[in-house]
Amino acid sequence: MELDSLDRDLLNIIQSDFPVTKEPYKHLADSLGTTEEDILARLERMTENHTIRRLGGIFDSRKLGYTGTLCAMKVPAERIGQVADVVNAYPGVTHNYIRNHEYNMWFTLLVPEKKDIEKVLAEIRIRTGLHQLISLPAVKLFKIKVNFDLTEG
């Protein structure tokens, strides 16, 4: 994927300082010395090629009242696809990765009510017959940085 320097400057700004104003794209165009049409065309291109995953609000799940946790599960290699189908069917499972450890399946779970965490995990144990599933809720948050500086790249 090719990004020119204006694409990079644009991504840098809109990752953290997207203007919440009536004409945000015009505002971005003015600060970057280009036209609104150019900004919109660049954003369309970068959305289509998935450089931009989403443009909108990134929410604090806790402040919206949700409870989250990170779960780890020991899954036999030959059952990964089938177990992933069970786990991924829950809308609150947003990320699921296989990692190089005996606890090989790692997924995040977000639910509207705290009590739902144990309920979902109990269901997963029953549906998969696998019991080595642990929940590791965060007790302290030191850093969440979701924007990357592109000016050096």
């Binding site: 994927m1 997207f18 919440v20 450089t51 931009i52 443009l55 919206l64």
Partner: peptide
């Protein structure tokens, strides 16, 4: 939206960028 930003319900307003696409 500005009020939700100031109260922290919206942690960040803007683009979520795929970092693999950027060389990470």
């Amino acid at each position: 939206i500005r009020d939700m930003q100031s109260r922290g319900l919206i942690r960040r307003f803007g683009a979520a960028v795929k970092h693999q696409a950027l060389g990470y």
